[in-house]
């Protein structure tokens, strides 16, 4: 069990507060900079603009160095850093539906990745850009967010079970 700086008794109260503050900071700066991961790739393909893309590439690099820094400072909180060396390299960090073989997680990464990219570029922004545009007063982006909210209930109730059944049916269940 990983232990962070705060004890569990304190952390359960700190979770909503800390994430709210982080969110306000990110939301403010995302509105200022027009931050968008999908938009970065799109602008590069269309105009060879690297401004937005630099934001996403910096995020990947900075997260590595951020985790590295806190792995030195608080090793107990970074139990499985660097994941590819401490675990089976082809299994993901938990978050996707559990209990499947590595092949299933490669499918889970490759196919959703392609369609997330395709749908988001056609709708003009990744999830954070849509959330920010909704706060700027765009009704259609607000409907995107409502779709995400409805989708999260449907995913937990039905779809997460279905994909596991599907993967077991093609022989990728653990």
């Amino acid at each position: 069990m990983a232990t962070g700086i705060l004890t569990k008794e304190v952390a359960i109260y700190a979770v909503p507060l800390v994430t709210l503050l982080i969110g306000i900071l990110i939301g403010y700066l995302a509105q200022r900079s027009g931050y968008c991961s999908i938009g970065g790739f799109r602008d590069y393909v269309l105009f060879r603009h690297t401004r937005l893309l630099s934001g996403y590439v910096t995020l990947i690099i900075a997260s590595f160095f951020g985790y590295l820094l806190f792995w030195f400072l608080t090793p107990a909180a970074m139990e499985h850093f660097f994941w590819a060396f401490t675990s089976d390299p082809l299994t993901p960090v938990p978050g996707a539906p559990a209990g499947l073989l590595p092949g299933a997680y490669l499918i889970f990464a490759a196919i959703p990745g392609f369609f997330v990219g395709l749908i988001c570029v056609l709708l003009g922004g990744c999830p954070i850009r849509q959330t920010v545009m909704a706060s700027e007063g765009s009704y259609k982006a607000a409907f995107f967010f409502v779709g995400m909210c409805v989708g999260s209930v449907i995913f937990a109730a039905f779809v997460s079970g279905w994909v596991v059944v599907l993967m077991r049916a093609i022989g990728l269940g653990a």
């Binding site: 995400m148 989708g151 999260s152």
Partner: peptide, 12 residues
């Protein structure tokens, strides 16, 4: 939004 959330959650 609905579909993107399903896909994102399948990946995690």
């Amino acid at each position: 939004g609905f579909v993107v959330l399903q896909l994102a959650m399948i990946f995690g």
